[in-house]
Design a protein around this nucleic acid. Structure first.
Lengths: 219, 219
DNA sequence: AGATGTTATTTGCAAAAAACAAATAAGTCT
DNA sequence: AGACTTATTTGTTTTTTGCAAATAACATCT
């Protein structure tokens, strides 16, 4: 009934996205133990069947340990497995990705953000994991409000526009973008709230309750 | 270094989709061992770190054991975990879903297909797994050629149209559908091949090499 | 105060895509 | 041959996009 086989190692890893200086970045952590001690890597750890309700709870524990609070958006990405990915033996890693506004990270000093297009060498199969995470984020950005979770609670249409351009990695027409976003009802203007500056004030928006509904699309 | 905790059970489960009598169905298997002996369930099994290169290899092994050949389309769906999902204790199940043309299933007698909207009671958290698998399939159908993998190698435009309607669960205009599919280049007509019947013959198509590229879309 | 610079937001129009309705094509069956 | 049925194309209307330019709103400078 119980399998006679030795059990594989079960762990979680996390890809924590943020946008700093208008660039898509990942939070990395310096490993304090072997293997790969001293190297920068994705934050992760073993799943403790006693304390963790499930792997998502384990991921949340890891993230809280790293940045000190919960990520506004967290989603399971993919499960990586095999004998080659970890020198300690055959392992399974359930990977989660999260979106975190840089504004909330600035105070936690332990969190260092590295642009995804200029990452240092990563241990294990973390390079592959990052590739998959970026691909997923890009993919979802084209038909959902995901990128908005990289912004603080209040943001302007331009903030949103820029963050979509960053995550998708392409130029988007301003007028069309504005129209499509408003039609989707994923954000709502905050009455009488504007960001003031040296120029015309910009309307501030917040996510609406429909924010997580994927955009309507039919084949 | 190695965790002091008892290791969780690691298994794979599979959601095997097919279309029979114009209805979206799942292949279920009757459990031969406790727990839930005798009940119908998703095909699955333990991951054997020795024989399975990774969880995808384990899934393929399970599928081959069930239907006797490889599925034309296989993709990781999600990893379910927790103490409550299996009476034997805390477990992780990496779930894969596959698309299989009914035509290739008709000969293997062990494969029984049940319409997804009329499934029998399922053990473990298999009900949840099914829900997630259907959701994923529906989602991907709106922007990819996935449903085409439920068809045999040669099919008509009407076959394809019906299968999209089935998986998406909505009506699609025939003329628009035809145009969009052809523009995407995911299928190609087989020269001089037609399905003949009591009426006007229908052009036969096959998947093109671009079949797996998701449709182009911008926000 | 008024001119100027700069960013935000709206408007208008041409082009493309989609939805809808209907006609035409190509066989079998009687 | 004519009726019937399904496949495929065509045409028209409506909606969405892409692009360019105009207008709005403020701070700052003169």
């Amino acid at each position: 009934m119980e399998p006679a086989y030795p059990q594989p190692l079960v762990m979680v890893d996390t890809a924590l996205f943020t946008i700093r200086d208008e660039r898509l970045c990942l939070i990395l952590t310096r490993r304090k133990e072997p293997p790969f001690e001293g190297l920068l890597a994705l934050p992760g750890g073993f799943v403790h069947a006693q304390e963790d309700a499930d792997t998502e709870a384990a991921a949340r524990r890891v993230i809280r340990g790293k940045i000190g609070f919960d990520a506004p958006y967290l989603e399971q990405l993919f499960t990586f497995s095999g004998a080659a990915r970890d020198p300690r033996g055959w392992s399974v890693s359930v990977v989660y990705y999260a979106l975190i506004p840089w504004s909330s990270l600035e105070q936690s000093p332990s969190a260092e953000a590295f642009p995804v297009d200029g990452l240092p060498p990563l241990p294990f199969d973390h390079r592959q994991i990052v590739a998959k995470a970026v691909e997923r984020l890009r993919g979802k950005a084209t038909y959902s409000s995901l990128p908005a979770f990289l912004l603080p609670a209040e943001f302007t249409m331009n903030d949103l526009h820029q963050i979509y351009e960053q995550t998708i990695g392409a130029r988007l027409d301003k007028a069309s973008f504005r129209h499509k976003i408003l039609v989707q009802d994923i954000i709502e203007p905050i009455p009488k709230h504007f960001r003031v500056g040296a120029h015309r004030p910009a309307q501030l928006y917040r996510l609406s309750s429909k924010a997580l509904t994927p955009f309507e699309r039919k084949i």
